[in-house]
Amino acid sequence: MAAFALIWWAASVLTDNPLLLPSPQAVSAAFAGLALDGELFTQSALSVVRLLAALLIAFAIAAPLGLAMGMSKRFEEFVDPVVELLRPISGIAWIPLGLFIFGVGQSLPIFIMAYTATFPVLIGTVSGVKSVDRKLVRAAETMGLSQSAIVARVVVPSILPALLVSLRLGVASAWTAVIAAELVGAPNGLGYAISWYREMLVTPKMIAFIAMVGVCGYFCDLALRLLAARLTPWAPGAEARR
């Protein structure tokens, strides 16, 4: 961290253009100022709430779909081509179309993030279901559990650790997409703030918001890791995480 700050400072002295690369001190001051008047937090909160809404949507789509794909070979063969065709298309590619459909507002960034997060969660769920220990399913069968009870009591808890890992991957990719979506398609939020201060030519504030993108991403991931440690205390490495 210290070395990074030092290189940054040296580079800012060399370029000697606060519009292109302000010094670390200027950015820290801007960061502190934005934090004090609350703007930093209101814009972050807007983006984070959108992230949560998008995750909820992605989870509601991907988890049941992944469960079905993992359990039925025929269903997977049916759905997989569509998934594999859509997956390489970045969420950002849908922004122009999203602008037509949703216009500028809440919906566009949520749609883009939900789209982006769906694929990691889906693929994590499918591979989680496929790696469920056959022996546990057989054990439940010998105890007379019905098929639906086996899904609820054996398959779902078995895939929970994989599901939480895939959720973290989903958050990471959705978070990269939200900034792009908000740069053009939202009236507020972190991405909007970055583009606003770029237009105002207030580079230190712009960089402060960019830094905030990293900070929020970090804390979202941390929250998910804590959630995983709470929900899956049996999973390998859970004790080390607590």
Partner: peptide, 19 residues
């Protein structure tokens, strides 16, 4: 098919790790 009248103890325990 399987039934509760015939219980099985598996070679590698087959315990549910989340319980």
């Amino acid at each position: 098919g399987p039934g509760v009248d015939r219980g099985v103890m598996f070679q590698d325990y087959a315990l549910f790790p989340w319980r």
